[in-house]
Amino acid sequence: MLRKGIALAAFGLAILAAPAALAAGGAAPVKHVEFSFEGPFGKFDQAQLQRGYKVYREVCSACHSMNLMSFRNLGQKGGPFFDPKYPNPNDNPYVKSIAAEYQIKDIDSETGDVIERPGTSADRFPSPFPNEPAARASNGGAMPPDLSVMAKARHHGPQYIYSLLTGYQDPPAGLKVGVGQHYNPFMAGDVTASWSGPHDKVPPGGFIAMAPPLAAGQVTFDDGTKSTLENQAKDVAAFLTWASEPKMQERKAFGMAAMIYLLIFAGLLYVSYRKIWKNVAH
């Protein structure tokens, strides 16, 4: 009996220890960082979304497209530049002026010539590169992924983005990093092939072609928020989460009403059930 107990306890410990014993090839667990939009009552912080958009625009957008985003999205309900005065985001002057700062390729409807015209609220965010080969050619062969749904396309999306952006570090001794590559413990991948250290101590993470994109002071925030690496990473992670799930706030608000309705309905049905079955032995 005792032996069985010890064996069981050992098995239990082994299971508990599982997450600690990181297998080779896994990325490091994401950093713990809290966001205002988490939890059933979570809401996006509009000022943070504005700062995050600025980080995207001044840094990320140099290489990363956001093909699913239109300028009008920035002014829609819950968006970074939503203004209750302009329920139709296409009328939002701030959105219009952001769009107008871009030159959009178009066809002249009179002549059929290829022209460039200022952007409108209805235009999509322009891509930094005309096509994939051009993007690869400018980035050492790597394709900067589209960021439209990035926060949904990775486990723990917002935390992952934050961890990756703040997680660059010098490669541990014994890790050979290729030309044009950078070591990041939060990047998916397996560095075993480039590791000359002990086999059971392969560092977590992988190699990423993107050089550390953010540094302290890189983006000046208009609202006076200190431009640390952490703040920039957190704000852009929030912006990308909003872009991935622009209806999240609406969803959670709707969910609360649905839950209250369902709970009351369930309660009424239970009471009816008790009343109807009162005289039936079962």
Partner: peptide, 24 residues
């Protein structure tokens, strides 16, 4: 009404679980 009400109650409880996933 015996099983319409009992099934109905169970369905709504199941919907609460369903809604938890959909909304949160």
């Amino acid at each position: 009404p015996y099983y319409t009400v009992k099934d109905g109650f169970a369905i709504v409880v199941f919907m609460i679980m369903f809604a938890t996933f959909v909304f949160y």
